[in-house]
């Protein structure tokens, strides 16, 4: 049986899917912008509550993971399979660290009584309630994307180790990499909007 793989078509399909993801998160960011316009002071107060350290560390490590996925494709195309697998494993591990940071960050917020439908938020200023509502929805949705991305990259890692992905057939890795980069791009916008707002 002859199997036919069309990497070019698959990549176009992946990009089309990413466009729908861009639209999804654009909608979220427009909601954020509209409420920022309506409650500017409450949003600034909300932003002060978020930890700049957690936000910055997660930004830096996610950028590094994006780099290692891109470098992994380069390594594979240069026929260094071990390096490609190592870089991919590093990216998955960084995704895990990102989620652990997120766990502590959310935990801290919840401990301080800031969580969806918390009495402090419901009875407090409307704008702050909106800010933290958006914070949980957007970072939560982004977190789900991180988990999906980690699963996809892990599958690629196994396929590289089993030599099912190699320098002549790396379409799957390329497409999973595209997804991971998109998740990174979304964080690039989340970081200044939530953590750096003054």
């Amino acid at each position: 049986m002859e199997t036919h793989s069309d990497t070019k078509g698959a990549r176009l399909g992946m990009w089309l899917f990413l466009y729908t993801e861009i639209m999804l998160f654009s909608g979220m960011f427009i909601l954020y912008a509209a409420y920022l316009h309506k409650f500017p002071t409450d949003f600034i107060e909300g932003g002060k509550e978020l930890s700049l350290v957690f936000g910055s560390v997660n930004t830096i490590i996610l950028l590094i993971s994006s780099f290692s996925v891109a470098a992994s494709i380069t390594a594979l195309r240069k026929n260094s399979r071990g390096l490609a697998a190592g870089l991919l494993a590093a990216a998955v591990a960084i995704g895990g660290i990102f989620l652990i940071n997120k766990y502590f960050e959310w935990g801290q917020k919840i401990h301080h009584g800031i969580y969806p439908n918390a009495p402090a938020l419901v009875n407090g200023p409307t704008g702050e309630n909106m800010f933290f509502g958006l914070y949980y929805v957007i970072t939560g949705l982004h977190g789900i994307h991180i988990i999906i991305g980690m699963v996809l990259l892990s599958v690629c890692l196994v396929m590289i180790l089993k030599n099912r992905i190699h320098s002549g057939n790396d379409g799957i890795l390329e497409n999973c990499g595209l997804y991971w980069h998109l998740v990174d791009i979304i964080w690039i916008f989340i970081f200044p909007l939530f953590y750096l707002i003054i």
């Binding site: 199997t3 793989s5 990497t7 195309r77 390329e174």
Partner: peptide, 14 residues
Amino acid sequence: MKITNEHPHVISYK
């Protein structure tokens, strides 16, 4: 297995 691969671009590590 037939693969229709347009010579993929390799971006240098540097």
